[in-house]
């Protein structure tokens, strides 16, 4: 508490007075649903499930295959589009699982609300783990070790594993996957030497001239909003329509969720289609009007040509590097319940 107060006081020094600077500070708690509070037992069980390849049809793929802690919580073998069951390539780039606890919509198109709702999707998807739940649930119930752990974590389950408890356990682990302290956090808490002068200039551009913080806003560097940033042109014929596929609402034509920029250096390639290789290119696209400038149906009005020079783009990418924290402390399981 005192720390936060102190930080808020110091913030005034770091930032101009007119901005509500506290928005960049980490929220006091990770949001968690009332019916699935985090406990050590649930987290530990969820972690085992997250890394267990037996959740896939041929025992080769786990959640970590596409969301690995040593790869910035995205693909262990970086790829523009996720590679899953038997090398099948999915339609989209694997997003990071980092800080998903802070999002109130999951997936690039926001089709799931909670991590619990999200967790069962990839298990059944034929391009991901290709494992029907009607096969997986009996398979898990044959593993005595898991039955015991489910009973401990969710006493009401009596050790009988259902898809609901499976989703809850995985979500509990995911809620521990939060970003660590980056140079930016130290800077914003008042240590003005924590970021280089160049990165500080980048931050000024980021929340000023370049307009980035219109969307990449707050502690998680995303306000959870959906936009078409002009990666493709015109009517998007044969291209992905994003959130418009969830419901044909005019505002959702070709829009995707604003991703977090925490640890962003670790998770190339970028964008929903993995079409962008570097932060320089991403900054150029987002800051100078999109890959396609004209005739993009429903392009955000905040993706405009801010005429960022090469040196300004370089300042911004230097700032983006300052959002990288050390890898979180995590013991990756190698032994699984039998």
């Amino acid at each position: 508490m005192i720390k936060i107060l102190l930080a808020t006081l110091l913030l005034g020094v770091a930032l101009q007075a007119n901005e509500d600077a506290s928005k960049w500070l980490r929220p006091a708690e990770v949001p968690q649903p009332k019916n699935n509070k985090m406990t050590p037992e649930r987290i530990e069980l969820g972690k085992l499930l997250y890394f267990d390849t037996r959740l896939s049809a041929n025992d080769t793929i786990s959640c970590a295959t596409c969301h690995h802690p040593l790869s910035g919580w995205t693909d262990l073998n970086p790829a523009p589009k996720a590679v899953g069951f038997e090398g099948r390539v999915g339609p989209r780039n694997s997003p990071v699982v980092l800080n998903t606890a802070y999002q109130n919509r999951q997936f690039w198109d926001g089709r799931a609300r909670t991590l619990e709702q999200q967790a069962l999707g990839p298990i059944e998807a034929d391009v991901e783990m290709n494992m029907p739940l009607t096969t997986l649930i009996p398979k898990l119930n044959k593993i005595k070790g898991y039955q015991k752990l489910f009973k401990k974590a969710y006493p009401k389950s009596k050790g009988i594993i259902t898809k609901e408890y499976l989703a809850k356990a995985i979500a509990s682990f995911e809620r521990t996957v939060v970003s660590t302290i980056a140079p930016f956090d130290k800077y914003i808490m008042g240590d003005s030497n924590a970021m280089s002068k160049k990165a500080q200039a980048g931050f000024e551009l980021f929340r000023g001239k370049a307009l980035c913080s219109t969307c990449h806003d707050g502690f998680n560097f995303s306000d959870g909003s959906f936009h078409n940033i002009g990666l493709n042109d015109g009517e998007l014929k044969g291209k992905e329509l994003g959130r418009y596929n969830v419901k044909a609402r005019a505002a959702w034509y070709g829009v995707f969720k604003t991703p977090t920029l925490r640890d962003i250096v670790k998770s190339a390639p970028y964008m929903h289609d993995g079409s962008v290789k570097s932060l320089t290119e991403a900054t150029h696209i987002c800051g100078n009007g999109g890959r396609f400038i004209h005739n993009v149906k429903n392009k955000s009005t905040f993706i405009m040509d801010n005429e960022l020079s090469r040196s300004e783009i370089s300042k911004i990418t230097t700032f983006l590097h300052a959002l990288e924290g050390p890898n979180m402390k995590l013991h990756i399981p190698t032994k699984f319940p039998q």
Binding site: N104, R105, G110, D223, G224, S225, F226, H227, R249, A251, W252, V255
Partner: peptide, 13 residues
Amino acid sequence: AGTFSIECAIHPN
């Protein structure tokens, strides 16, 4: 009559 929630399509928060 009833209770319902209104959201923003761009900013679901």
